[in-house]
């Protein structure tokens, strides 16, 4: 249970960063933290107390196995995060070229 709470705390840290930080790079990092918290949650979901790693060895089956499916999901979601982080970083670079700043409170041409 403690692990789940800590994982949730990590999630809140990420959410706080996305909402409250004004620096583009810090926002991107917070988005990463948010993603890691969810990935950690998925891995925790698949964990079994005293479980064996989910690989067959030889002919004798393992009694208790860690659930391998969430690990596959985490791998997929890491790939997706990689893609979206690359996209957002590219946007941040272009924004810096246009505005000469990473401060989001100064990047305000759209309003209304």
């Amino acid at each position: 249970m403690t692990l789940y709470l800590l994982c949730f705390a990590l999630f809140l840290v990420g959410l706080y960063g996305v909402i409250a930080k004004r620096d583009l790079i810090k926002i991107i990092l917070s988005m990463g933290i948010l993603g890691y918290a969810v990935n950690l949650f998925l891995v925790l979901v698949g964990y079994r107390q005293g479980g064996h790693y989910p690989i067959l060895e030889g002919q004798n089956p393992v009694p208790v196995m860690v659930d391998p499916l969430p690990q596959a999901l985490v791998l997929t979601s890491i790939v997706i995060e990689l893609g979206s982080t690359a996209m957002v970083v590219a946007l941040a670079i272009r924004l810096f070229q246009k505005y000469q700043t990473f401060d989001i409170s100064k990047i305000r041409r759209l309003r209304g």
Binding site: A86, A90, I93, R94, Y99
Partner: peptide, 20 residues
């Protein structure tokens, strides 16, 4: 893809003079 992404990001100029 990863190599090209990092390369493209590294190519970007972040110097002054391109401001809109």
């Amino acid at each position: 893809s990863l190599f090209l992404v990092v390369w493209v990001l590294a190519e970007a100029r972040t110097s002054k003079g391109d401001a809109a």
